[in-house]
Computed example of a mutant assay.
Amino acid sequence: MRDDASTAAVRDLMAEFAARTGLDPSGIRPRRYLWTDAYAVCNYLGLFRRTGDASYRDLALRLVDQVHHILGRHRDDDRRTGWISGLSEKEGEAHPTRGGLRIGKPLPERGPGEPFDEQLEWDRDGQYYHYLTKWMHALNRVRRVTGDPAYTRWAAELAKTAHAAFTYVPASGGGKRMYWKMSIDLSRPLVPAMGQHDPLDGFVTYSELQMAGGSGCGGSLQSDLSPEIVDMAGICREGGLATDDPLGIGGLLFDAGRVVEMMIRGGFAYIDLLASVLDAARTGLAAFVGSGALEYPAAYRLAFREFGLSIGLSGVDALVERIRENPDLFGRQSPVQRRAGALVEYVPLAGRIERFWMDAGNRQTGTWTGNREINTVMLATSLAPGEFLAI
């Protein structure tokens, strides 16, 4: 899709999202969902950069404010009130991410005495680590565009809070592990299993914030994420990365792009990690393509998971080029360069996924309408991924 056509499509998709969720025009009860909103912030910033229209920058800032004042506070149906951090109103305004951020699920979180129901848990509120890291990244993008250091400070505070709550040492001993889902107040795990890519995502995102300067936090000890980065590096060594889930593969490609860029900028030397991530992405892509999932009708496909892949694939050409441009760092015809180059054959899948879901008929199915906001926003990101993929 040509740049002018993709910009027009993204404008329309993001206008639909803003109207449906109470962002613009502002609703009495806006509906906020942390994962979707992180991508949406990047999309509005991208529109601002591409068009010069300041109203898109303002929408991004308004969305950040809504997220903090809705997902940083207790639910309306909760007996608890105020900031989930427990801070006073004044302190909460200054540090809105200090207690983490709710997911934004429709049902209240499972109470301490309630039995676990795997199916019901998907619709219950709480905090997801991988949603928090996406929000850290979005806040850092806001700081890059606006120059306001408060956004990276909030991202770093969120990183410290999330790390302290989600990581733990098992009672049986061994290295640190991570919980997948925590309660709203971060006092107890709701799902104790560890997300496959959560340690990698945390390691890369913390490193992104650290490279941003502790930026915005004046390099103070409070903003130094070195201990958390060391922790995550250790947890990353514990498990495999390969997956045939398209959203997971896209996440690997997103992380690989950030690792390459941070290595080029200096102060980040993890060539072995990069090789492992690239290998896992290629293995996953081969398995996903071999599964024939892209041949299924729309009723049997989840658009937002496929968009995760198309977004990641959109960054592959730039990743390969950045490696090629820096032979002193990555080597000439090095194993890393060959690994990255092997991903190029899969890049056309991004356009194939976008064309399928741009078909209005495919967006009439329940798998689209039942996840309309996240599908809409991630389609927009896939059509114009530059701001999301940047660091």
Rank of each mutant, 00 (worst) to 15 (best):
H197S: 14
D198M: 09
P199W: 10
P199V: 02
P199H: 11
P199Q: 11
L200G: 12
L200V: 05
G202N: 01
G202Y: 08
G202L: 06
F203R: 10
F203T: 01
V204N: 03
T205M: 01
S207T: 02
S207A: 06
E208W: 00
E208I: 01
L209G: 08
Q210W: 07
Q210Y: 09
M211Y: 14
M211V: 08
A212L: 03
A212H: 10
A212I: 02
C217N: 04
G218M: 14
G219L: 02
G219N: 02
G219T: 08
L221P: 07
L221V: 00
L221A: 13
L225C: 13
L225Q: 09
P227E: 10
E228F: 09
I229R: 10
V230N: 01
D231T: 01
M232A: 12
A233E: 11
G234F: 04
G234K: 09
I235E: 06
E238W: 04
E238A: 10
G239R: 15
G239P: 13
L241N: 04
A242P: 04
T243M: 12
D245Y: 06
P246L: 03
P246Y: 01
I249W: 12
I249H: 04
I249Q: 13
G251V: 06
G251K: 11
F254V: 04
D255A: 04
D255N: 06
A256V: 06
G257I: 14
G257R: 11
G257M: 14
R258Y: 07
R258K: 14
R258V: 03
V259Q: 05
V260S: 00
V260D: 03
M262I: 00
M263G: 12
M263W: 00
M263N: 08
G266R: 03
G267A: 12
G267F: 15
Y270C: 05
D272K: 11
L273P: 09
L274A: 02
V277F: 05
V277A: 02
L278P: 07
L278V: 04
D279P: 01
D279Y: 03
A280Y: 00
R282A: 00
R282Q: 06
T283L: 15
G284I: 13
A287S: 07
A287E: 10
F288V: 02
V289Y: 09
V289K: 07
S291E: 12
G292C: 15
A293E: 03
A293M: 10
E295M: 05
P297V: 04
A298R: 09
A299L: 14
L302W: 15
A303N: 13
R305V: 11
E306Q: 15
F307K: 07
L309T: 00
S310Y: 10
S310R: 14
I311M: 15
G312K: 00
G312A: 01
G312R: 10
